[in-house]
Design a protein around this nucleic acid. Structure first.
Lengths: 158, 158
DNA sequence: GACAAATAGTTGCAGAAGCAACTAATATGA
DNA sequence: TCATATTAGTTGCTTCTGCAACTATTTGTC
C-alpha cells in the first residue's frame, strides 16, 4: 500500500529517468504507427523493411548476418529467424561467402528491391505525418545528431 | 540478386527514414544497456521499473490497467500479464475500484516502493554513463522537448 | 602441423507480447 | 425500463525474440 502519492521534485522525476522513458515511449509509438501503416499499405512488417534498408545502404549490396543483426539491434538467433522469414517471403537470399565458410551474406532479391521501393514511397508519406508535421527541419537535424551521439555511447559501453 | 549496390543520395537515405531507424536503434540500445544493468544490480526487469515509476508519479499513487498500459505503450492483454508477474513478485497489488467495478487499480506495495527506490539509485548511475556523458544538459533538454512533441503527434494519429 | 581459443551462424527451448474472442459492468436511448 | 452499445479487463492462441548450447570454420600458439 502506497502512501505519500507523489512529489514533483521526487527522484523519479529526475530528468534522466524521464528522458529514457520518453525515448522508449516515442520510439515505440512511432514504430507502432509506422508499422501498422506499412503492414496495411505495403503488406510487409516494419522489421522486414528495416533489414532491407540496411542491406540496400551497404557498399556491396549485401551484409553478413552479424552486420544486419548489429545494425538493427537483434540477437544473432533472432536475426537467423527473421531472415528465414524474409527468405520464405522471397525478399532476400542467403549467399555463401567464398573466403570464409562460416559467414553468410544476405542480399536483396529483385522482388525485394521492388518491394523496398514501393514500400518506401508509402512510408515517406507516413513519416511526413509522424515526423515532419511536428518537428522542423532544423529540429530533425538536431534530433538526429543527438541520437547519433547517444547510440555511439550505448555502443561503446555494450 | 541486387546490383547497383547503393547511391548516397538514394531515397532510402532520406533524412526521415534515417531518423526513424536511428530512434529505434538508440532506444533499443539504451534500453538494453540500462535493462541489463538493472537486472544485474537490482534484480528486476526494466519493464517492472517503468511500470513502478508511472504509478509512483501518479497523483493518487495508483493507475488503472488502461492508464499504465497506455503510458508504457503496451496492449491491454500484455499489461494484464505484466502486472500478473509484478503481483507475483510482490511489487504491486490490484485494487478494486469502488465506483466502477470494471476498473482495476494498480498500486505499489511497500516492497515495491522500497525496490523502486533502491533500483533508482543504481539506475541513475547507469544513466549518467549512458546519457549525461555524451549529451550536455542543454542537449538533453532539447532532446526531451523534441521527443515530447513527437510523442504528442504519434498519440494524436493513433 | 596439431590443439586450443575465438568467431559465425543455427537450433531447442522458454518467456514475453499482441490480437481477437470473451466476460462483466456501465452508459445510452427509445 | 429494457435492449443495445461501449468500456475495462482477462484469457486462448500464435508469433516473435533472446539465451544457451551446439556445429562448423578459422585463427593463434606452441
Amino acid at each position: 500500500m502506497a502512501e505519500q502519492p507523489n512529489s514533483c521534485d521526487s527522484v523519479i522525476n529526475d530528468e534522466r529517468i524521464v528522458l529514457l522513458g520518453l525515448l522508449a515511449e516515442s520510439a515505440a509509438r512511432l514504430q507502432r504507427s509506422a508499422g501498422e501503416a506499412m503492414e496495411e499499405q505495403s503488406g510487409i512488417p516494419l522489421a522486414f523493411y528495416e533489414v532491407m534498408v540496411r542491406i540496400r545502404r551497404s557498399e556491396a549490396g549485401r551484409l553478413t548476418m552479424s552486420e544486419v543483426a548489429n545494425e538493427t539491434v537483434y540477437s544473432s538467433g533472432g536475426m537467423t529467424r527473421l531472415i528465414d522469414r524474409m527468405v520464405d517471403a522471397g525478399f532476400v537470399e542467403r549467399v555463401d561467402c567464398p573466403t570464409d565458410r562460416r559467414t553468410v551474406f544476405v542480399a536483396l532479391t529483385d522482388a525485394g528491391i521492388a518491394q523496398l521501393e514501393q514500400a518506401t514511397e508509402v512510408h515517406l508519406d507516413q513519416l511526413d505525418r509522424l515526423l515532419s508535421s511536428r518537428l522542423s527541419c532544423d529540429e530533425r537535424t538536431q534530433l538526429r545528431d543527438m541520437l547519433v551521439k547517444l547510440t555511439a555511447e550505448a555502443d561503446a559501453l555494450a
